[in-house]
């Protein structure tokens, strides 16, 4: 009787085509060898460390400046190629108008008040443009962060469920978002304005759901969030803003890299 080779037993172990099974049914020796092989290979395991749901963002941040010249729409817009003079001219023009139309920040108000009250943010092209710009970026960063919270809640909500708490938060965010969006345009951040608008539309969707959302309602919103990659965009924006706010000047850098 010809016994199985080690290679045949190995193929059987991996479920590949092998003639060993038939032989083993009548051969105790080969069956014992197969069991030993199986025991050995069953012990060979390798479980990769977990990466959390922000890993995609980390990879993207690490590679995006190493990609060849083809430009991203909203990321390219994060680092506008307009000259500083053009940007300053725009700020001056729009800021002048905005400064006349919008209420100014109360200089005595604490920073947290300025952050939490959308109407407190006024944009003008005066000597403290940079400080105002940072305030706008801070408020938008905070807004993205809170929007992330609501969107993530909806994405992870068990269905069906009571959405009234998320709807209240979404309604507050929508109310603030319109001003933030205008401010983003004023400070020449069209990409940010575009993402704010996308977020706003989804937040409005959430607001307009019946409080007792059905599985289908939730599914429709999730699909919309998912289809737009909205959470990812919000997180990229938050990441980018945090990086910029950590810099001495919040002016869009010519090259930004937050990770790697």
């Amino acid at each position: 009787m010809t016994h199985c080779s080690d290679d045949e037993l190995l193929l059987e172990y991996y479920g590949e085509e092998s003639g060993s099974t038939t032989h083993r049914s009548v051969c105790a020796e080969c069956t014992a060898r197969y069991r030993a092989l199986k025991q050995m290979l069953d012990d060979v395991t390798l479980e990769p460390p977990e990466r959390d749901d922000r890993y995609g963002l980390e990879v993207w941040q690490a590679i995006r400046h190493r990609l060849p010249a083809r430009e991203s729409r909203w990321h390219a817009m994060l680092t506008p190629r307009w000259g500083l003079a053009a940007a300053a001219a725009l700020l001056l023009a729009v800021g002048f108008t905005a400064g006349r139309l919008w209420p100014r920040v109360d200089p005595t108000a604490p920073p947290s008040m300025a952050l939490s009250t959308p109407n407190a943010v006024a944009v003008s092209a005066t000597a403290d443009d940079e400080a105002r710009r940072r305030v706008v970026l801070l408020t938008i960063n905070d807004h993205f962060d809170r929007s992330d919270g609501v969107l993530a809640e909806v994405m992870n909500a068990g269905s069906p469920r009571d959405l009234s708490a998320e709807q209240q938060r979404a309604a507050d965010l929508v109310a603030a978002s319109r001003l933030y969006r205008r401010n983003a345009v004023v400070i020449n951040e069209p990409a940010m304005a575009a993402v704010l608008e996308e977020v706003e539309r989804v937040l409005l969707d959430i607001v307009h759901q019946p409080p007792q959302a059905t599985a289908a309602d939730l599914d429709a919103i999730r699909r919309r969030i998912d289809a737009a990659g909205l959470l990812f965009k919000v997180r990229v924006m938050t990441n980018e803003l945090q990086h910029r706010l950590e810099q001495p000047s919040s002016a869009p850098p010519t090259s930004t890299s937050t990770i790697g």
Partner: peptide, 22 residues
Amino acid sequence: GDGEAFALLVNSHARTAFRLAY
């Protein structure tokens, strides 16, 4: 050449790619 679209692909596949690479 739409970087936004590519970012979404990175986001969708990064964890699977990491498990395989590891």
